[in-house]
Design a protein around this nucleic acid. Structure first.
Lengths: 136, 136
DNA sequence: CCGTATCCCCCCTGATACTG
DNA sequence: CAGTATCAGGGGGGATACGG
């Protein structure tokens, strides 16, 4: 399994030369590389609503594989965005919930998601126009 | 939508059947899949400052390959975020700049990037803590 | 200077089967 | 119910060479 300490994003910790905006390491890539994952934003959005258990999340996002759900939740937990609580019931249940850090991230992130919904038509229109102009 | 299918509140306050969160149908994924590219946010951030030429962007982000710079710029142009202007000088030069649509996207996106910078330390700390607890 | 084209590798992701 | 293990495929991304 590549997730965990051994899995360091390609440019995490490396020098970021865009000193205009960042003198040291590049937080943008280090943070964005994780939340840019295929399922991260969906799960954050779900958990921003309220805590969910593993099986609930699975039903909530039907097209995610069990493997990717486990892995993405683990990565989000590792970065401190979500909490994982195990209830030693029988059978066991595990509840995932947003941490304060995760909620603080979701606040600005939500604005981008809002933008996506509001401007989806413009983006699709731009694509059509671009593709038409490419017909040569 | 199936009866009893899980629904969560969306950013717009509406409810959304997450089973329809399919790229092409879901604005969030359709837009984010592009933004989530390895270099997209960095180039948007660069161009939000001012227009740049191809070679300038290349020097600005030294560790991007020429292939990925071309490809990412093309994708961003296709989605209507940036403009591409060719000057028939000799040798030719090409200038990239943000469109109004791109600027309107960058406004909320910048908040996420700002968050990344402001909370990078917290994220890194969370990773260390998580990795240490995994050694048990 | 600004790309395209080609090759190739690696990692993400999915499918399936198995455990506590 | 909540994971782990293993195998296989596709595509994102890098290196290099070539074209306008």
């Amino acid at each position: 399994m590549k997730t965990g300490a051994a899995r360091v994003p390609t440019f995490a910790g490396e020098e970021c030369d865009m000193s205009t905006w960042d003198a040291g390491k590049c937080p943008v890539r280090d943070v964005m590389d994780q939340i840019a994952g295929k399922w991260s934003t969906l799960l954050l959005q779900a958990l921003a609503d309220k805590p969910y258990r593993f099986g609930e999340l699975r039903r909530l996002v039907p097209d995610i594989s069990q493997r990717m759900l486990t892995q993405t939740l683990r990565d989000l937990q590792r970065d401190g965005y979500i909490d994982r609580k195990v209830f030693p019931t029988k059978p066991p249940s595990v509840e995932y919930s947003m941490t304060p850090l995760g909620l603080s991230l979701f606040e600005p992130l939500k604005r981008v998601l809002d933008w996506a919904e509001a401007n989806h038509a413009s983006v699709k229109a731009a694509r059509v126009k671009f593709d038409e102009s490419e017909l040569a």
